[in-house]
Design a protein around this nucleic acid. Structure first.
Lengths: 303, 303
DNA sequence: CTGAAAGCGCTTACAG
DNA sequence: CTGAAAGCGCTTACAG
């Protein structure tokens, strides 16, 4: 009977079933920028784990636009997605309100908004940044610059704070001139480097809040004929594939992206299916990968 | 009235509406590998254009797996998506049958399966490959290797064919030893280079079917101490962001990805909304971007 | 012009 | 255990 139905091309309508059961078997993932390899790899893991569990992923790319994010949150709630994975920038107060009263399960990926009660999955940003800065300090660097991410993101904030803290703990005074803003893109890393390297008293090392910006810094150094690591040390964050390239060889902090994505989905699904208890706050440990972009500071500059 | 409803948090159920109107306002995009920057940029454009037109995108990443692709095609048909954008590898015969009899609009992105009647959007692969090979020929290269993509993809096939043709047209005999398989990943480019550069009579130039593989080749050359372009010329295909990097400076064929994605969506939406006539086959023109990885062959090898 | 009813295609609780 | 009926929340064609 069922076989006959199949042969005749019968397909059970998921829409009708969703209406009846109030379950769409669909999860929305909100990311800031999929072109960023970092997110792309998380998206892959998310998609895979979701597929295994029978869920589809609706991808929403906010391009870090506040209005697009709000639009998506509302559209997805209307679509009655079973849950949301939030990996874009911080939500507006109104969005949080809506999400809270609506009650659809949410998991924060790599951001930690205290105003929304939800499960959280991410990496120990503070620990990662500390590892990076201490590595640089151990080589004798004192003028360590920082290229940060957008302020609207908690990960960027945590990395920045930990950078400051690590310097203070080492008795190094923080020079505010050495802190440059970035937006996680390669171009913004290059631009920040242009600024930092033109300073009267330039840094001997730069710690970047992600690899893409570090790669931008390396490019800018190349353009200026500044040899890395002899004249300038660079450390990134993420450990994307390009960091391993023989021409780049970037020392960086490894973030287990596939795990992050997979855990985000399983956490969310457990919540959706009522299998979880208290709110989770899972933080994976990053570690330092030492490659070829760090060396002692040039003699002239060392203390 | 409507205002009151909104204030009370009323949300019209998209599911119910979909059931009634038989329109889901959802499009599925099937890609082979989102971690590949090439696809990522297309996905962004697709997502953006879809959002503007009121559609959501369900992302399906096949990881080039036949079973996953089949699974997705069926799941999406059950979900009653309004249309599909196919940008993974070639479909199996059964999938084509199902799609054909089901009648859901489809647009092929960068692949040209003759067995499924659907709109097609892509790039002139043959022209691009010809441009690349002729560029190399004009510098005096005769031993030009080719690192191809997966055979299951029409784009790879077209690029390979055009490579052969361009050589023949120039009166250069094709050495089958100089044709290496790849899978569009950086690692596969490096691996193919390892093979090609170990040949008794190695090539003086390598044309890669995409940039990622070319970047892998450049890395492998660096590892072996082979200077580019003095000892080896390299040309890629796509013009991804990393191709511009000061350390890479890859000569390549530019593919207008944002346009590709945008046109794919508008073509599909027009079809869904019954606004289109005969089947479309849109081919955008690529062009050569000359950077720093091509030079005349080393004297010892030149004829 | 307004308002009640039918129906989209399922699932599930209930009657026989 | 089987089968007919109600209902999920909309839209739309139809009666008043």
């Amino acid at each position: 009977m069922l076989e006959v139905a199949n042969r005749l091309g019968y397909r059970a309508s998921t829409t009708a079933r969703s209406l009846r059961t109030q379950r769409s078997w669909t999860i929305c993932m909100l990311v800031g920028d999929i072109a960023n390899t970092y997110y792309a790899e998380i998206v892959i893991a998310v998609e895979e784990e979701a597929w295994r569990r029978g869920y589809s992923i609706i991808l929403a790319n906010t391009q870090f636009s506040e209005t697009k994010q709000t639009g998506y949150v509302n559209a997805m709630l209307d679509k009655q997605v079973d849950g949301l994975i939030l990996a874009s920038h911080n939500l507006s107060g109104r969005d949080i309100e809506i999400l809270n009263e609506h009650g659809t399960p949410v998991v924060f990926l790599s951001r930690f908004d205290p105003k929304l009660e939800a499960d959280k999955v991410g990496v120990e940003n503070a620990q990662g940044a500390r590892l990076a800065v201490e590595h640089l300090l151990s080589f004798g660097h004192r003028r360590i610059a920082f290229i940060g991410g957008r302020q609207l993101t908690t990960a960027a904030y945590e990395r920045y704070n930990s950078y400051k803290e690590a310097l203070v703990n080492a008795g190094v005074e923080l020079d505010p001139l050495l802190v440059a803003p970035g937006n996680y893109s390669q171009a913004s890393g290059a631009e920040a480097a242009r600024h930092l390297l033109s300073l009267p008293n330039p840094p001997t090392a730069i710690f970047c809040a992600n690899d893409l910006m570090a790669i931008g810094v390396i490019g800018e150094a190349k353009l200026r004929g500044i040899p890395i690591p002899e004249q300038l040390s660079v450390v990134g964050f993420d450990n994307i594939e390009m960091a391993e390239h023989p021409l780049i060889q970037l020392t960086t902090i490894h973030v287990p992206r596939a795990e992050l994505g997979q855990i985000a989905v399983s956490t969310l699904c457990n919540r959706i299916e009522g299998k979880s208890g208290g709110l989770l706050d899972i933080r994976l440990a990053p570690h330092l990968i030492s490659r070829a972009t760090v060396a002692p500071p040039p003699l002239a500059k060392s203390v």
